[in-house]
Design a binder for these strands. Structure first.
Lengths: 342, 342
DNA sequence: CTGAAAGCGCTAACAG
DNA sequence: CTGTTAGCGCTTTCAG
């Protein structure tokens, strides 16, 4: 039966049906629908009853068409499979953005760009008037999505700040400064041979974290002590640590590009018999669920992921209201969380 | 400048503009837009040129309105904050569904229902004609979203199968059978006192996993050996294990409701000096990233999350095409992955 | 092969 | 306070 019903779904009631039923005009129905003043009590009650009786539900496509807005904001996540599933921050960014949009009565629609085909379809979708603005998470430099959004000149705010977004609004963290601060903190514990496992150098975040590390070690910099790995992942952390340890057995401090990397590194260090933090101090980046699961718990940089999402949402909303958006290039604070690993 | 531009965005070109520019009628423009036959070569080239010249982008709201479909599918995740961020399966379900929908040229729009307010807005949004069908992840019994979808009679497929969805389509795993199988495997290693840390009993998945465990132990069932905890989380795994260990120090096998729970339990067991798998064998459920991070790696039930997403997407698509949906109540296989923890 | 015209469902002036 | 009237941008008969 379900399939038959699905075929010929009964025609939905429209404002016209409601008007007929209530014995008023469509205009009046529209007025009560939009909570406008100047509607008699009688008309209002008649219409409310009619709405309930015919089971009227407004059609948003029609509404968007005439109003030229949809009361929906897209949140675009441009990530290949794996990262989306693994990145602990994305979920928090989503929740933060959703909370802010929800308060403003906007529907958030998360759109995933996984394959090139997705990117194309997405570009078409965005142009459709079904979405009033977008939040873009993890765009890369030269991203086709960025271009599409610019072309459509759709109100947009980036989470993170790729170099090529011009004067577009963004909210981000200062990866370089945060990396510098936590490295300094690690150095302050008296370590002499501090290395780094530097992941994701093809992204701004990865490159900036390395730059911050270099800033901090300053004159003591030794290229031997930096091991580069492709991803912010546990297994790359293991791999990187093994290589680094083989090359520099005297290393006594590690700054890992992310908590997952740190966790991998820590497991390798411990299985090689190094005590943490006694023999080697280690710090990470993200303050994700990995951090608390480490033993000892990881000292790390806290990323305010929920706040990033919320701030990005507020920024798009501001653009929608036509307020000049002060948050262009806004940066959020990243407190250092000092635990037992260094 | 960006804010000024954002205010008076230039009016977008419409079919009318294209028609004028190409010197044809709107009807003809529409025909080439939809790749219909019976358009002269001349008209076609003129129109293509005009489209490029005026920068025409079709308005999907208008299109949806007349076509009564939007070529978009909603994927609804109904979870309070924390779980969305933590549940490793959700990300994979998303990717699987997105892949299938993308192939069929549908846009997937992920909608989060976090607060009651979200649920309301969502119900309105769904009714709007902006979405042709929905995939619903992690609905609970008595879920208002379920009711809204039923009322709208929107093509829908559930991932998981709450008791109250009637004859609606769903794709799920057999939690009970899988739990039974892995418990049996654990029992087959010769354990005499096998307990369970049973999480999330308010959900079908949690209750079914416990039922499967009970099936497997059969006559040897001892209520003392079952510890109930609220969430599928690492910390509840720790808490549950501590309590269980205090009550039954002779326990020599553990079935944990999820990998995260197992990880927590394992850490407690080891810090209490129990060797795994020598003293205690432990198995989990999910085959998530937790499993490989355990030491020794966790034996567990593999959840085919990506396939669940894909199958759900295909099911909605089938309903949209009006094909009777054979997948109503479909179940996917969960292979057991045996590693070193038992 | 193509133009004209009607209409999807809704809102927003504009007269009453 | 309310009805009438025009569209929003697109597709789709129906005549040519």
């Amino acid at each position: 039966m379900s399939s038959v019903e699905a075929r010929n779904r009964r025609r939905r009631a429209t404002v016209k049906d409601v008007a007929l039923e209530a014995g008023v005009s469509r205009g009046t129905v529209s007025r009560v629908l939009n909570g406008q003043p100047y509607v008699s009590e009688d008309a209002r009650t008649a219409i409310d009853a009619a709405i309930a009786k015919v089971g009227f539900i407004p059609n948003r496509a029609a509404r968007s068409l005439v109003l030229q807005r949809s009361q929906a904001i897209g949140l675009i996540v441009h990530e290949p499979h794996s990262l989306f599933v693994e990145d602990p921050n994305i979920g928090s960014i989503l929740m933060g953005a959703n909370a802010a949009l929800s308060e403003a009565d906007y529907q958030m629609s998360t759109l995933i760009a996984d394959t090139p085909r997705d990117v194309d379809r997405l570009a078409r979708y965005l142009s459709g008037g079904l979405i009033d603005g977008v939040i873009i998470v993890s765009a890369r430099v030269g991203d086709p999505i960025t271009e599409a959004v610019a072309r459509l000149d759709l109100p947009a705010t980036f989470v993170g700040r790729p170099r090529d977004i011009g004067s577009a609004a963004s909210v981000a963290i200062d990866n370089r400064d945060s990396a510098r601060r936590i490295t300094n903190r690690l150095l302050a514990t008296g370590r002499r041979r501090v290395g780094m496992i530097a992941a994701a150098l093809d992204r701004d975040s990865g490159a900036d974290r390395l730059a911050g590390f270099v800033d901090a070690v300053g004159g003591r910099f030794d290229a031997e002590l930096v091991e580069r790995v492709p991803l912010y992942s546990y297994s790359d952390g293991q791999r990187g640590m093994r290589t680094l340890l083989a090359r520099c057995p005297d290393v006594d401090g590690i700054f890992a590009s992310s908590d997952a990397v740190a966790a991998g590194a820590m497991d390798v260090l411990q299985s090689e018999g190094r005590r943490i933090p006694d023999d080697v101090g280690i710090v990470g980046f993200d303050d994700s669920s990995w951090a608390m699961r480490c033993d000892p718990p990881l000292s790390t940089v806290h990323q305010p992921a929920t706040e990033l999402g919320r701030a990005a949402a507020e920024s798009v909303l501001r653009q929608l209201r036509g307020v000049s958006d002060e948050s262009e290039g806004r940066q959020l604070e990243c407190p250092i969380v000092w635990r037992g690993s260094a």
